[in-house]
Simulated scan of single mutants.
Amino acid sequence: MLERYGVVYFGNDWFAENRTSSHHVAQRLAAHMPVLYVDSPGMRTPQASGRDLRRAWRKLREALRAPQRVGEGLWRCTVPQLPFRRVPGVPLFNRLFSQWALRRAMRVLGTRQRISWFVTPHPGFLARRLGERFCVYYCIDDYAAHPGVDAELIAASDLALTRAADLVFVAPPALVATKQAQNPQTRFSPHGVDARLFAQASDPATQLPAAAQGIAEPVVGYFGSIHEWIDVELIAWLAQQRPQWTFLLVGYAAIKVSALEALPNVVLAGAQPYASLPAWAKAFDVAIIPYRRNRQVENANPLKLREYLATGKPIVAVGNPEIERFASLVRIANDRDPFLAALDQSIADGPAHGAAERMAAVADQTWDRRVEDVLREVATSLAAAEMNLAARKVTE
């Protein structure tokens, strides 16, 4: 029945430095029904940095263009908003402008009935305003805990969207109970992984990137953006304790990392194409998740956890509820000395020790399977809603 529908999908920036669950889910939804992917503006107020100004200018230019086809059955458009949401008149302007722009963009979906699908809460004021038959909120984070956001406004947007949605999917296990209390139609839906892609890290045929060739071993590796919730001081301390090791960090640095840049055994590779991450991971002797312990991390479901497991590499991580579900496969250490001891043990064991078990643990947790499970729930709920509507019409 889903072939009768098209999806208006509010996700993260399509051109973001890293691929998130927002991108993975949208690409797979498009295999089942047409998807209009709407770049959602950042939750935080833009800063006067060159990067933020370039992004704002790009979004303004793209808002005037027709949706861009980025895949089979998948189009992308940008609907920018004024970020000053507490200024009188701005919320009304954002709503009216967004509705006008989306009416034009939604033409790519043809005459199909629509499903609105939100991965971020701040455009949630558009829920039920697009003529959609069904609304999905796919919650992947504790958004109000992100640094630099207006926590009160984002929390209010998150709550309103949770209550408005016909179906809520929640990736972080720590948020499930709260969301179920706010909306009984809430389902736990943990992240998936591109298991076949990341298995290339264990394939002898995979070539190391040039920048990873010839570096001193052993290699402690990390891939993903470096944001405020990454404990840069922990990484620097570890590198100072083991100057004979190489710390290879692959990803865009969104914060200052001068403490790392000053260390000769730290390699900052910068942002790299998503498809190349397994090749970088092949160089790792052990992979790390060096989180800061805070509310955001406690309520997170780290995508890189399953990606690391799919590479087969040993993992040392600061714990949270989702990571602790894999405690038999991941060395969890919440302080500096235990973290260093866990790295020592992982390197002593070698990267092949336990690799098969780690890879097997996520082999069936693919994004394809996750999206199939989600769509099964959506189809069931849609069928029930249509039956209820038909029954009401009969009794009227």
Results as ranks from 00 to 15, higher is better:
Leu2Ile: 10
Tyr5Ile: 02
Glu17Gly: 13
His23Val: 04
Gln27Ile: 05
Gln27Asn: 12
Arg28Gly: 00
Met33Tyr: 08
Val35Ile: 07
Leu36Gly: 02
Val38Gln: 06
Ser40Met: 09
Arg51Ser: 08
Arg55Asn: 13
Arg58Gly: 09
Arg61Ala: 11
Arg65Leu: 15
Gln68Asn: 10
Val70Phe: 14
Glu72Arg: 15
Cys77Gly: 06
Phe84Lys: 00
Arg86Leu: 08
Val90Thr: 04
Leu96Tyr: 12
Leu96His: 14
Gln99Ile: 14
Trp100Ile: 05
Thr111Tyr: 08
Gln113Ser: 13
Val119Thr: 07
Val119Arg: 08
Val119His: 12
Gly124Thr: 01
Gly124Met: 02
Phe125Thr: 04
Leu130Glu: 12
Phe134Pro: 00
Tyr137Gln: 02
Tyr138Thr: 00
Tyr138Met: 05
Ile140Trp: 11
Asp141Lys: 06
Asp142Asn: 15
Ala144Gly: 06
Ala144Trp: 09
Leu153Glu: 04
Ser157Gly: 07
Ser157Thr: 02
Thr162Ser: 11
Phe169Trp: 11
Val170Trp: 05
Ala174Met: 07
Ala174Glu: 03
Lys179Asp: 00
Gln180Leu: 09
Ala181Thr: 08
Gln185Asp: 15
Arg187Asn: 01
Ala195Cys: 05
Leu197Asp: 10
Ala199Tyr: 09
Gln200Leu: 15
Ala201Gly: 01
Ala201Ile: 05
Thr206His: 08
Pro209Arg: 11
Pro209Phe: 12
Ile215Lys: 01
Phe223Gln: 10
Ser225Gln: 12
Glu228Ala: 15
Leu234Phe: 12
Ala236Phe: 05
Gln241Trp: 04
Pro243Phe: 09
Pro243Ala: 04
Phe247Leu: 04
Ala254Val: 07
Ile255Glu: 08
Val257Ser: 08
Ala259Asn: 02
Leu260Ser: 06
Leu260Met: 10
Glu261Asn: 09
Leu263Thr: 02
Ala269Ser: 13
Ala271Pro: 03
Ala279His: 03
Ala287Cys: 14
Tyr291Lys: 00
Arg295Met: 07
Gln296Asp: 05
Val297Asn: 08
Ala300Asp: 01
Gly312Trp: 06
Val316Lys: 06
Ala317Met: 13
Val318Gln: 04
Asn320Glu: 12
Pro321Ser: 06
Arg325Ser: 12
Ala333Lys: 01
Asp335Gln: 15
Arg336Met: 07
Pro338Trp: 14
Asp344Met: 10
Ala348Asp: 03
Asp349Cys: 09
Asp349Val: 02
Asp349Ile: 05
Gly354Asn: 09
Ala363Asp: 08
Gln365His: 11
Arg370Glu: 04
Asp373Phe: 05
Arg376Val: 09
Val378Thr: 00
Glu396Asn: 09
